[in-house]
Design a protein around this nucleic acid. Structure first.
Lengths: 172, 172, 172, 172
DNA sequence: TTTT
DNA sequence: TTTT
């Protein structure tokens, strides 16, 4: 009925970009969000929050954010489950990002483009059914590290504990 | 750096109230938040989001909310980990509620008191060090179902998969 | 760069539905949001927050909410200005609702349809350019009070202090 | 009942720090929050959102933020009214910040201290009744521009259109 | 399994 | 009355 999350933190690693069998892009990344208070031992801790973003913004995230980047996320909490390798059900709570905001100053790391662009915003590209956007088998033009992105039928999310990603996981 | 969550949904069960060894109250509950869109099969799904709240508001939650209650939560996402019974580390993502809003109409279920009271708000009772409030070993005056609340040294969170709760888990 | 608002409160009046010259629906309403704390005199006060919503959700709001309805709003803060009748510029801060959640129990007032429907959600109807939706000159099928809705060239927002509304006010 | 705002944007001017007659600090500032979409003319616009923060965090804001600083605000919307100089009531909608996050990189402007400190967080200093904090007549130790801060009985908010600020305006 |  |  209402479900809203806003985060600002730093990526713990480079984002991970995958494609579903039908060619839809998904990026996943973890945000380290430092707490504003200290624990009983006087240490400042952080929450490590897993985030997922789909379609064009996923490719923007993969192209413009990297380990250590300061980013803002606006989205919602999503829970899902899948069968773990040991046979029992694994429950996941993560943030489905609807937009990701790049908060690094423009000249901070050199390989980033314009400042403060919002990666989920233009409503029509965000819309799965809108316009003429077809992400099927599409490859990003710009690619930070030139790797060949894994397609999901070639074992996506292998190292993130999720065995299989399908088009059924699409948020809308 | 920034971490904010707002949810409105219904409790999937009665809230679960525990006490730490030093007597601090903790309530946990799960909110079912219906999605506003349907999946590929045209079904409306829900996210099941685990929430935790501490101190006096925890007791209010235990006393005034029950399975099916419509409630709003304002808080933040918290991640933590503990050693599972099988020896490997379990990672948990949940919402630390800072305030819980009761959204049921006053006359809906009969045993609820005033409408729309906010359970975390009065800052001074919320403050662990503030004023003369001492929740240590305190028992709620009103008690919906008159059970004798488990103290944590008597196996708290036993059925929720967490073996041990300590005062170190206090959010501030 | 980031701008997110979540509110739950009650409508102070029936919502006000207008149409731009090109036929786009706009509803405006005020939410009374009770504060969770009391002032120096021990009184509980409220904030009265003006909200605006466009297109199909505007018509849903007009059809399903009325004075006193409990509603949730997810949106963003918008500022705008116009020339007042006394010649000087008037500055307005209001909430642009992206979705409105009806939180009244289903049987509470009789003339409401299903419970907890979300009025802004289905992304494709929300999209101004999406699909085959054309709201131009469209009239709501269901109409709570059967009035003939004012079109904006017939002096819309006359009683709300804004002299003129145009298609330029569309949020996207 | 629920009222939550999260913003990230840039200060349009240096923050304005005042004191109530009883010595409580208040800072006000405007955040320019760029929209993520463009208007009909293809221009990217911004919302200019007035924010207010009280007590110790107000002094931190005054000391560490200035025109152009990137900042995050977590708070709520507040409405209030006062009698304008022309005799008629003026209605104000603004954001009451509960915490302000400094998002500028540490070495960006030279005169800022540590990175990403949160200015409203430590709950006990935030609490008006908590601990031994007494802001009465207190002057900030660090002062960016060494001006002598106006006290409110010496015409505070004179240039912001509000004639008088009193301790009754304290949010809690 | 974590970021500055 | 607006910021990068």
């Amino acid at each position: 009925m209402m479900n809203r999350v806003v985060l600002v933190g730093r990526l713990t690693k480079d984002p991970d970009l995958r494609y579903t069998p039908s060619g839809v892009a998904v990026a996943s990344f973890t945000l380290a969000v430092n707490r504003t208070f200290t624990n009983q031992q006087g240490e400042r801790e952080a929450d490590f929050i897993n985030c997922v973003i789909w379609r064009k913004p996923a490719e923007n995230v993969a192209n413009f954010l990297k380990k250590g980047s300061l980013a803002g996320v606006d989205g919602r909490i999503q829970t899902r489950s899948y069968d773990g390798q040991d046979g029992k059900r694994v429950y996941v709570t993560e943030v489905l990002a609807e937009s990701v905001q790049f908060l690094e100053p423009r000249n901070s790391s050199g390989n980033n483009r314009s400042d403060n662009m919002n990666y989920g915003a233009p409503r029509e590209q965000d819309n799965p059914f809108g316009g003429s956007n077809n992400y099927q088998n599409q490859r990003p033009q710009t690619n930070r590290n030139n790797q060949d992105y894994t397609r999901v039928d070639e074992d996506p999310f292998a190292n993130s504990g999720q065995i299989d990603i399908s088009d059924d996981d699409l948020p809308f």
